[in-house]
Protein backbone atom coordinates (compact mmCIF):
# COMPACT_ATOMS: atom_id res chain seq x y z
CA UNK A 1 0.00 0.00 0.00
CA UNK A 2 0.93 3.68 -0.17
CA UNK A 3 2.03 3.55 3.43
CA UNK A 4 5.00 1.35 2.56
CA UNK A 5 6.20 3.71 -0.18
CA UNK A 6 5.82 6.67 2.17
CA UNK A 7 7.66 4.89 4.99
CA UNK A 8 10.99 5.55 3.27
CA UNK A 9 10.39 9.28 3.00
CA UNK A 10 11.00 12.01 5.57
CA UNK A 11 7.93 13.78 6.92
CA UNK A 12 8.45 16.97 4.85
CA UNK A 13 8.95 14.79 1.75
CA UNK A 14 5.69 12.96 2.46
CA UNK A 15 3.88 16.30 2.67
CA UNK A 16 5.51 17.36 -0.60
CA UNK A 17 4.40 14.15 -2.36
CA UNK A 18 0.83 14.55 -1.11
CA UNK A 19 0.77 18.23 -2.10
CA UNK A 20 2.05 17.38 -5.59
CA UNK A 21 -0.68 14.76 -6.06
CA UNK A 22 -3.30 17.24 -4.85
CA UNK A 23 -2.04 19.87 -7.32
CA UNK A 24 -2.31 17.31 -10.16
CA UNK A 25 -5.88 16.58 -9.09
CA UNK A 26 -6.62 20.31 -9.07
CA UNK A 27 -5.10 20.79 -12.54
CA UNK A 28 -7.18 17.91 -13.86
CA UNK A 29 -10.31 19.36 -12.26
CA UNK A 30 -9.65 22.77 -13.79
CA UNK A 31 -8.77 21.65 -17.29
CA UNK A 32 -10.31 18.27 -18.18
CA UNK A 33 -13.30 18.30 -20.53
CA UNK A 34 -13.31 22.08 -20.76
CA UNK A 35 -15.01 23.49 -23.80
CA UNK A 36 -15.47 27.11 -24.72
CA UNK A 37 -14.03 30.28 -23.28
CA UNK A 38 -11.24 29.84 -20.67
CA UNK A 39 -12.14 33.25 -19.30
CA UNK A 40 -15.43 31.72 -18.18
CA UNK A 41 -14.33 28.18 -17.41
CA UNK A 42 -11.43 29.01 -15.07
CA UNK A 43 -13.27 31.37 -12.68
CA UNK A 44 -16.34 29.08 -12.74
CA UNK A 45 -14.35 25.99 -11.90
CA UNK A 46 -11.97 27.98 -9.67
CA UNK A 47 -14.66 29.03 -7.22
CA UNK A 48 -15.96 25.47 -7.13
CA UNK A 49 -12.45 24.18 -6.43
CA UNK A 50 -12.07 26.77 -3.68
CA UNK A 51 -15.34 25.59 -2.14
CA UNK A 52 -14.19 21.97 -2.24
CA UNK A 53 -10.80 22.84 -0.71
CA UNK A 54 -12.44 24.96 2.02
CA UNK A 55 -14.95 22.25 2.82
CA UNK A 56 -12.33 19.48 2.96
CA UNK A 57 -10.00 21.63 5.08
CA UNK A 58 -12.79 22.44 7.54
CA UNK A 59 -13.73 18.79 7.86
CA UNK A 60 -10.07 17.72 8.17
CA UNK A 61 -9.13 20.28 10.83
CA UNK A 62 -12.26 19.82 12.93
CA UNK A 63 -11.82 16.05 12.88
CA UNK A 64 -8.10 16.03 13.67
CA UNK A 65 -8.45 18.47 16.58
CA UNK A 66 -11.50 16.63 17.92
CA UNK A 67 -9.57 13.36 17.84
CA UNK A 68 -6.68 15.02 19.67
CA UNK A 69 -9.00 16.20 22.44
CA UNK A 70 -10.76 12.86 22.80
CA UNK A 71 -7.60 10.73 22.24
CA UNK A 72 -9.75 8.56 19.99
CA UNK A 73 -9.38 7.79 16.30
CA UNK A 74 -12.96 6.85 15.48
CA UNK A 75 -14.78 9.84 16.91
CA UNK A 76 -15.55 12.82 14.72
CA UNK A 77 -17.78 15.86 15.23
CA UNK A 78 -20.16 14.36 12.64
CA UNK A 79 -20.46 11.10 14.52
CA UNK A 80 -21.14 13.17 17.64
CA UNK A 81 -24.30 14.58 16.09
CA UNK A 82 -23.29 17.99 14.74
CA UNK A 83 -24.68 17.15 11.33
CA UNK A 84 -27.89 15.86 12.85
CA UNK A 85 -28.27 19.27 14.49
CA UNK A 86 -27.70 20.94 11.12
CA UNK A 87 -30.43 18.84 9.52
CA UNK A 88 -32.78 19.66 12.38
CA UNK A 89 -32.15 23.39 11.89
CA UNK A 90 -32.82 23.11 8.15
CA UNK A 91 -35.94 21.02 8.58
CA UNK A 92 -37.30 23.31 11.28
CA UNK A 93 -36.73 26.33 9.03
CA UNK A 94 -38.69 24.80 6.16
CA UNK A 95 -41.41 23.66 8.56
CA UNK A 96 -41.83 27.10 10.15
CA UNK A 97 -41.40 29.48 7.21
CA UNK A 98 -42.31 27.16 4.34
CA UNK A 99 -40.36 26.10 1.29
CA UNK A 100 -40.76 29.44 -0.51
CA UNK A 101 -39.69 31.45 2.52
CA UNK A 102 -36.73 29.15 3.08
CA UNK A 103 -35.55 29.53 -0.52
CA UNK A 104 -35.78 33.31 -0.30
CA UNK A 105 -33.44 33.73 2.72
CA UNK A 106 -30.15 35.39 1.80
CA UNK A 107 -27.54 32.57 1.82
CA UNK A 108 -24.93 34.66 3.68
CA UNK A 109 -27.46 35.63 6.33
CA UNK A 110 -28.55 32.01 6.61
CA UNK A 111 -24.93 30.91 7.03
CA UNK A 112 -24.25 33.53 9.70
CA UNK A 113 -27.31 32.58 11.71
CA UNK A 114 -26.65 28.86 11.31
CA UNK A 115 -22.98 29.26 12.30
CA UNK A 116 -23.82 31.24 15.40
CA UNK A 117 -26.53 28.76 16.34
CA UNK A 118 -24.35 25.72 15.67
CA UNK A 119 -21.38 27.18 17.59
CA UNK A 120 -23.59 28.18 20.52
CA UNK A 121 -25.26 24.76 20.59
CA UNK A 122 -21.93 22.96 20.42
CA UNK A 123 -20.41 25.06 23.19
CA UNK A 124 -23.50 24.56 25.31
CA UNK A 125 -23.27 20.82 24.77
CA UNK A 126 -19.53 20.63 25.47
CA UNK A 127 -19.58 23.34 28.13
CA UNK A 128 -22.30 21.52 30.01
CA UNK A 129 -19.99 18.58 30.50
CA UNK A 130 -16.84 20.65 30.96
CA UNK A 131 -18.37 22.52 33.87
CA UNK A 132 -18.57 19.31 35.83
CA UNK A 133 -15.82 16.80 35.70
CA UNK A 134 -13.46 16.89 32.77
CA UNK A 135 -14.90 13.80 31.25
CA UNK A 136 -14.62 13.58 27.49
CA UNK A 137 -16.23 10.12 27.57
CA UNK A 138 -19.42 11.50 29.09
CA UNK A 139 -19.37 14.36 26.59
CA UNK A 140 -19.17 11.88 23.71
CA UNK A 141 -22.01 9.81 25.09
CA UNK A 142 -24.08 12.98 25.54
CA UNK A 143 -23.32 13.92 21.93
CA UNK A 144 -24.38 10.54 20.61
CA UNK A 145 -27.63 10.63 22.53
CA UNK A 146 -28.36 14.18 21.39
CA UNK A 147 -27.67 13.07 17.80
CA UNK A 148 -30.35 10.40 18.15
CA UNK A 149 -32.72 12.99 19.65
CA UNK A 150 -32.08 15.47 16.80
CA UNK A 151 -32.71 12.75 14.20
CA UNK A 152 -35.92 11.67 15.94
CA UNK A 153 -37.29 15.23 16.02
CA UNK A 154 -36.29 15.70 12.36
CA UNK A 155 -38.09 12.49 11.49
CA UNK A 156 -41.21 13.69 13.34
CA UNK A 157 -41.19 17.03 11.48
CA UNK A 158 -40.74 15.20 8.18
CA UNK A 159 -43.99 13.34 8.84
CA UNK A 160 -45.82 16.56 9.65
CA UNK A 161 -44.52 18.59 6.75
CA UNK A 162 -46.33 19.37 3.49
CA UNK A 163 -45.25 16.71 0.94
CA UNK A 164 -44.46 19.40 -1.65
CA UNK A 165 -41.97 20.99 0.74
CA UNK A 166 -40.32 17.71 1.59
CA UNK A 167 -38.25 17.97 -1.59
CA UNK A 168 -36.83 21.31 -0.35
CA UNK A 169 -35.66 19.56 2.83
CA UNK A 170 -34.22 16.69 0.84
CA UNK A 171 -32.21 19.15 -1.24
CA UNK A 172 -30.93 21.09 1.78
CA UNK A 173 -30.07 18.09 3.87
CA UNK A 174 -27.75 16.25 1.55
CA UNK A 175 -24.22 17.26 0.69
CA UNK A 176 -24.11 19.01 -2.65
CA UNK A 177 -20.78 19.51 -4.33
CA UNK A 178 -22.29 21.02 -7.47
CA UNK A 179 -24.04 24.26 -6.59
CA UNK A 180 -21.82 26.55 -4.53
CA UNK A 181 -22.50 30.08 -3.39
CA UNK A 182 -19.63 32.45 -4.25
CA UNK A 183 -20.01 34.78 -1.26
CA UNK A 184 -20.36 31.89 1.17
CA UNK A 185 -17.31 30.24 -0.33
CA UNK A 186 -15.14 33.29 0.31
CA UNK A 187 -16.44 33.81 3.85
CA UNK A 188 -15.89 30.20 4.85
CA UNK A 189 -12.51 30.18 3.10
CA UNK A 190 -11.28 33.13 5.19
CA UNK A 191 -12.67 31.56 8.39
CA UNK A 192 -11.10 28.19 7.66
CA UNK A 193 -7.77 29.72 6.65
CA UNK A 194 -7.69 31.73 9.89
CA UNK A 195 -8.40 28.57 11.90
CA UNK A 196 -5.64 26.70 10.03
CA UNK A 197 -3.07 29.45 10.72
CA UNK A 198 -3.99 29.55 14.41
CA UNK A 199 -3.92 25.78 14.82
CA UNK A 200 -0.53 25.57 13.11
CA UNK A 201 0.79 28.28 15.42
CA UNK A 202 -0.07 26.09 18.43
CA UNK A 203 0.93 22.72 16.94
CA UNK A 204 3.30 21.95 19.83
CA UNK A 205 0.59 22.68 22.36
CA UNK A 206 -1.73 20.31 20.48
CA UNK A 207 0.93 17.59 20.62
CA UNK A 208 1.09 18.03 24.38
CA UNK A 209 -2.69 18.10 24.79
CA UNK A 210 -2.81 14.75 22.98
CA UNK A 211 -1.02 13.31 26.03
CA UNK A 212 -4.16 13.98 28.08
CA UNK A 213 -5.16 16.43 30.80
CA UNK A 214 -2.72 15.47 33.53
CA UNK A 215 0.40 15.37 31.36
CA UNK A 216 -0.60 18.61 29.61
CA UNK A 217 -1.18 20.40 32.92
CA UNK A 218 2.08 19.01 34.24
CA UNK A 219 3.81 20.59 31.26
CA UNK A 220 2.25 23.98 31.94
CA UNK A 221 -0.72 23.95 29.52
CA UNK A 222 -3.95 25.40 30.91
CA UNK A 223 -5.86 22.38 29.68
CA UNK A 224 -9.41 23.47 30.52
CA UNK A 225 -9.04 26.90 28.90
CA UNK A 226 -7.34 25.50 25.80
CA UNK A 227 -9.99 22.78 25.45
CA UNK A 228 -12.77 25.37 25.41
CA UNK A 229 -10.96 27.42 22.76
CA UNK A 230 -10.43 24.35 20.61
CA UNK A 231 -14.05 23.24 20.97
CA UNK A 232 -15.19 26.67 19.78
CA UNK A 233 -12.92 26.37 16.75
CA UNK A 234 -14.24 22.88 16.00
CA UNK A 235 -17.83 24.18 16.19
CA UNK A 236 -16.99 27.05 13.84
CA UNK A 237 -15.31 24.72 11.35
CA UNK A 238 -18.21 22.26 11.40
CA UNK A 239 -20.65 25.13 10.90
CA UNK A 240 -18.65 26.37 7.92
CA UNK A 241 -18.41 23.03 6.19
CA UNK A 242 -22.04 22.04 6.75
CA UNK A 243 -23.37 25.45 5.66
CA UNK A 244 -21.17 25.48 2.56
CA UNK A 245 -21.68 21.96 1.20
CA UNK A 246 -23.99 20.10 3.58
CA UNK A 247 -23.67 17.31 6.08
CA UNK A 248 -21.21 14.46 5.58
CA UNK A 249 -20.87 11.78 8.20
CA UNK A 250 -17.76 9.78 7.52
CA UNK A 251 -15.52 11.93 5.31
CA UNK A 252 -13.62 13.33 8.30
CA UNK A 253 -12.99 9.83 9.53
CA UNK A 254 -11.67 8.78 6.11
CA UNK A 255 -9.33 11.80 6.02
CA UNK A 256 -8.07 11.15 9.55
CA UNK A 257 -7.47 7.44 8.88
CA UNK A 258 -5.55 8.18 5.66
CA UNK A 259 -3.52 10.94 7.34
CA UNK A 260 -2.46 8.65 10.17
CA UNK A 261 -1.64 5.89 7.68
CA UNK A 262 0.40 8.06 5.33
CA UNK A 263 2.11 10.40 7.82
CA UNK A 264 2.64 7.98 10.68
CA UNK A 265 3.49 10.49 13.37
CA UNK A 266 1.01 12.23 15.67
CA UNK A 267 2.93 15.49 15.50
CA UNK A 268 0.39 18.13 14.50
CA UNK A 269 3.01 20.11 12.61
CA UNK A 270 2.74 17.43 9.91
CA UNK A 271 -0.61 15.86 10.67
CA UNK A 272 -2.70 19.02 10.26
CA UNK A 273 -1.39 20.09 6.82
CA UNK A 274 -1.37 16.47 5.65
CA UNK A 275 -5.03 16.00 6.59
CA UNK A 276 -6.00 19.20 4.73
CA UNK A 277 -4.03 18.19 1.62
CA UNK A 278 -5.38 14.63 1.65
CA UNK A 279 -8.96 15.81 2.23
CA UNK A 280 -8.86 18.44 -0.52
CA UNK A 281 -6.90 16.29 -2.97
CA UNK A 282 -9.16 13.28 -2.54
CA UNK A 283 -12.33 15.33 -2.87
CA UNK A 284 -11.14 17.16 -5.98
CA UNK A 285 -9.86 13.93 -7.56
CA UNK A 286 -13.20 12.19 -6.85
CA UNK A 287 -15.16 15.14 -8.21
CA UNK A 288 -13.00 15.17 -11.35
CA UNK A 289 -13.48 11.45 -11.84
CA UNK A 290 -17.24 11.51 -11.39
CA UNK A 291 -18.03 14.83 -13.02
CA UNK A 292 -15.52 14.97 -15.89
CA UNK A 293 -14.63 11.35 -16.64
CA UNK A 294 -17.78 9.41 -15.73
CA UNK A 295 -20.14 12.35 -16.33
CA UNK A 296 -22.05 11.62 -13.13
CA UNK A 297 -23.36 14.63 -11.21
CA UNK A 298 -24.47 13.47 -7.82
CA UNK A 299 -22.58 10.37 -6.78
CA UNK A 300 -19.44 11.85 -5.15
CA UNK A 301 -20.91 12.37 -1.70
CA UNK A 302 -22.49 8.94 -1.69
CA UNK A 303 -19.30 7.14 -2.73
CA UNK A 304 -17.07 9.09 -0.33
CA UNK A 305 -19.51 8.42 2.50
CA UNK A 306 -19.58 4.71 1.66
CA UNK A 307 -15.76 4.49 1.71
CA UNK A 308 -15.69 6.51 4.95
CA UNK A 309 -18.29 4.22 6.49
CA UNK A 310 -16.27 1.15 5.58
CA UNK A 311 -13.18 2.81 7.10
CA UNK A 312 -15.17 3.39 10.28
CA UNK A 313 -16.05 -0.29 10.49
CA UNK A 314 -12.47 -1.35 9.71
CA UNK A 315 -11.12 0.89 12.48
CA UNK A 316 -13.68 -0.55 14.86
CA UNK A 317 -12.94 -4.16 13.94
CA UNK A 318 -9.16 -3.72 13.98
CA UNK A 319 -9.50 -1.86 17.30
CA UNK A 320 -7.31 1.00 16.10
CA UNK A 321 -9.31 3.43 18.12
CA UNK A 322 -6.34 5.09 19.80
Amino acid sequence: MGGHVMDNLSLPSRLAVLATLAVFALLAFMTLESRGNWGFVLPFRGIKALALITFATSVALSTMVFQTLTANRILTPSIMGFDALYILIQTSLVFTIGGVGYASIDPVMKFTVESVFMTAAALALFGMVLRGVHDIGRMVLTGLILGVLFRSITSLINRLIDPSEFSVIQQANFASFNAVNVELTWITFVLTAACFVWLMSIHKRLDIMALGRDAAKGLGVDYERETKKLLAVIALLVSSSTALIGPVYFYGLLIAALSHKLIGTWRHQYLLPASCIIGAGLLIASQTLFERVLSLQTSVAVVIEAIGGITFLLLLFTRKTR
Binding site: D207, A210, L211, G212, D214, G218, H260, T265, W266
Partner: peptide
Protein backbone atom coordinates in the same frame (compact mmCIF):
# COMPACT_ATOMS: atom_id res chain seq x y z
CA UNK B 1 7.40 18.08 37.30
CA UNK B 2 5.17 15.08 37.92
CA UNK B 3 5.21 11.55 36.55
CA UNK B 4 1.91 9.74 36.43
CA UNK B 5 1.77 6.14 35.43
CA UNK B 6 -1.73 6.50 34.02
CA UNK B 7 -0.72 9.01 31.34
CA UNK B 8 -2.31 7.82 28.05
CA UNK B 9 0.76 7.84 25.84
CA UNK B 10 0.04 8.84 22.26
CA UNK B 11 1.34 5.91 20.25
CA UNK B 12 2.80 7.46 17.11
CA UNK B 13 5.50 9.59 18.71
CA UNK B 14 9.17 8.77 18.90
Amino acid sequence: SIFRQSTPITPRLS
